[in-house]
Nucleic acid binder design. Sequence first.
DNA 1: TTGAAAGCGGTACCAA
DNA 2: TTGGTACCGCTTTCAA
Lengths: 365, 365
Amino acid sequence: MVQIPKQQPAPDPAPDAPSPPSDPEQRDAPHPVPHSVPTSADVARLAGVSRATVSYVLNNTSAVRISEPTRRRVLEAAKELGYVPHAAARSLRAGHTRMVLMPTPQIPVGPLFSQFFSELQWALSRFDYTVVQYGSLGLTGEEAARAWAELRPVAVLAPDATALGARGVAVLKRSGAKAVFTLGPQRAEGAHALLMDQRLVGRSAAEHLLARGRRRIGVVVPEEPGLEPFARPRLDGARAAVRGAGAAEVTELPLGYGEASAARLAARWRLLGLDAVYAYNDEYAMLLMRALQDAGIRVPDETAVVGADDLMLGRLLRPRLSSVRIELPSGRGLAELVHRVVREPGTRPEVHDVLGVSVVHRESS
Amino acid sequence: MVQIPKQQPAPDPAPDAPSPPSDPEQRDAPHPVPHSVPTSADVARLAGVSRATVSYVLNNTSAVRISEPTRRRVLEAAKELGYVPHAAARSLRAGHTRMVLMPTPQIPVGPLFSQFFSELQWALSRFDYTVVQYGSLGLTGEEAARAWAELRPVAVLAPDATALGARGVAVLKRSGAKAVFTLGPQRAEGAHALLMDQRLVGRSAAEHLLARGRRRIGVVVPEEPGLEPFARPRLDGARAAVRGAGAAEVTELPLGYGEASAARLAARWRLLGLDAVYAYNDEYAMLLMRALQDAGIRVPDETAVVGADDLMLGRLLRPRLSSVRIELPSGRGLAELVHRVVREPGTRPEVHDVLGVSVVHRESS
DNA sequence: TTGAAAGCGGTACCAA
DNA sequence: TTGGTACCGCTTTCAA
């Protein structure tokens, strides 16, 4: 094992002596003194100035000019003590934060969304916002909202699987949030929405299959819980597309993410009498396509297969997997939108339809 | 395009107006006021009690018994106002937080780590910690540490691609962090480490190939930046394994994540004279294996292929992909460790080697 | 150019 | 059982 060099906790540098008689259990500390955290008062003391001056210097307050020598003394003192301002104290005083809170999505996100989120984060930080992801873990809409509201974020971007309801939105707004957005397949009353209408995905896939002359279309619905907010609308979208086309129909196909489940489905495939399948996304599509082939079903001759997300890996199977390519909005655009709403909190909630879809036709369909 | 129901922003369902009958100088508000955020003082006023009492009731303070009628009045007032406590104020007063800060990893994480993280988050919340992911975006170790320290987290779990140095660790500790962990392939002076030694992965893969009688082993190193902290040690691990075996050698193979790059590599494959390749992870392995097959190289006869991460998708190719299965520690275990260190901040930094690896032999090797 | 002091929203001690 | 009040760390008038 690696050797850990010994570590001696620095002795309390500022003995805080002037503590009034009222400093009882502060002394409960055992041996290795927990070394109290330096405050701006400590910096002031060390630099021989007032706390006000420290604040002026450290914030480059433009309304006040501090002499160069003083400035330098303060800066040195701060560095010497390793002073770091206390964000909570600051925002308490300021009466607002620059925090954009984004509850952690409950379901594992793919590379597409990761990329989008990372871009968004970067763009928001250009506007001087601090992006924080907060795990809410199984709290219902309103409870979750209350937990988030305690942090007094200036904006909340909620992946709406959390089912933030109208109530939740209200809680957040009352707590001072200037902008509340949902971000996903559903929307919430009172909140702005970046609506990612998953029906478009299913619709697009189904239309593609119809255009290829297929009529009896299966739609895979993952059995994994948590995927439902995505899977259900995709199925609905496919249904809607087919409804417009005469003599075509949709069959719902539950499928678990594993070879066994796929094999089971493939085994009864011919009984289903389908000539095409849209398989939720590329992973399920790859899984199913392989199982079909193993069961002797010819793709795409007997059954066409199409997935979604246009993963690179889908191109590696033979036949290459057709897929619905999904495009999310630019993080930059969303950041600007958030910024605008924050500055004009009055604006009525808008719904932005942000999902771009297009079919990438390859060999499987 | 699916029609988005034309959006009429529902008239504010709760017309904020009806401030309760008893609401004294709250009336300073002009028109449809931005309606200032209710504080515990507002609750106290509405309930006709002191702020202290409000605090007692809302926190179920056990040292103090509040009469049932008072209790109820306070609770009602709080609900009526939609009161949510201000976390910053609370922690300012308390002198500490229960926040566990986890800087967002810079590189996209796979399902393995996502799962681990989600479990960890859940387990920490059982200990009443609040897990927060904070995007630091391109700050160097010490700057990043300062930014994190402003939040005064009680613990920091840093995916160490952020290169949190000894300095960064010191900054965090001075700011009051009781536990600082790195979490990944490297470690930092002064911090506890959950060392995920990636060399094990490469070593394991190479040993497997050697055991299968292969001698001239290629190791794929992704060209994507950001993967280096993982890729480099994996390569080193493979080198180390081979060094022990006589007459074997390792060839480094840069590869970009795309078919073109893979095809290029495959085209010159026979010139390389390799009889096996360990391809960083399953995605790169799948990519390369397909390219090799397309170039007429027989897998595993001519060249054995092994990946890592044991993705489900790897089982769908033919031959099925052999892979190094990686096991991360249980989130529960780590949560307990964090909790322990928080309670005993004196404990010297320990290095825990947490990566479990095992080869899953399938058909590609 | 600098300092004194009020106060942001809670909590917890002490008195009533 | 309740209320008064002194803080926590920081910013920002207002005076000096």
